[in-house]
């Protein structure tokens, strides 16, 4: 397992000006950092020989609904070498829901980011193929946003006509 201290010193050493925060809950490390630095930090975490977080397990977002900074993008990465997980959290400023893509760092991030875009409407700058993952291309809404009703918007996706069958 990677300890919070080791991660702290490593990051301080590499990014002296980075404004980050490490917290621990139920033995899980969470690293909160500003959205603009996400790509360089990810690159460092992947390539540093002592950390080697070479596997991107999951990317998702959280919609905080009424907070000022509404969205948080969450990355869940895994290191074989230390057999440990790390969660990165990048808060987006409410003015724009855009963040740089990390698909250049981990190839696996490609579909996860597409899914996050589909569900939350967060745009990933520089993503090679930012399409909807699950819902039809002409669907306008992003269902996991908190203001989207569970039963959806009526008639937002057309159904085939029931002709005069028997």
């Amino acid at each position: 397992m990677i300890s919070a201290e080791l991660l702290n010193t490593k990051l301080k050493e590499q990014f002296p000006e980075l404004d980050f925060e490490i917290s621990e809950f139920r033995d899980e490390l969470t690293l909160a950092l500003p959205a603009n630095n996400i790509v360089e930090v990810c690159k460092y975490l992947k390539t540093n020989p002592e950390l080697e977080f070479i596997m991107c397990m999951d990317i998702t977002a959280i919609d905080w609904s009424r907070r000022k900074d509404r969205f948080t993008v969450v990355y869940n990465i895994f290191s074989f070498k230390n057999n440990s997980r790390l969660r990165l959290k990048a808060n987006l400023k409410n003015t724009d829901n855009k963040i740089d893509t990390v698909s250049s760092v981990w190839e696996a991030a490609n579909w996860h980011e597409r899914e996050t875009f589909d569900m939350y409407g967060i745009e990933f700058n520089g993503h090679p193929d930012l399409r909807r993952m699950y819902l039809p291309e002409d669907f306008e809404y992003h269902p996991l946003q908190k203001d989207f009703p569970l039963m959806g918007i009526p008639d937002s996706i057309p159904l085939p006509k029931k002709e005069n069958d028997r």
Partner: peptide, 30 residues
Amino acid sequence: GEIYNAIEGSKGELGFYLVSKGEGSPWKCK
């Protein structure tokens, strides 16, 4: 708080990421 817990499912790593705000239902479940 928030947790991520994974087990070795039959197809691979099956994990649930839960964010709780102290309510009866999860605030976010991935």
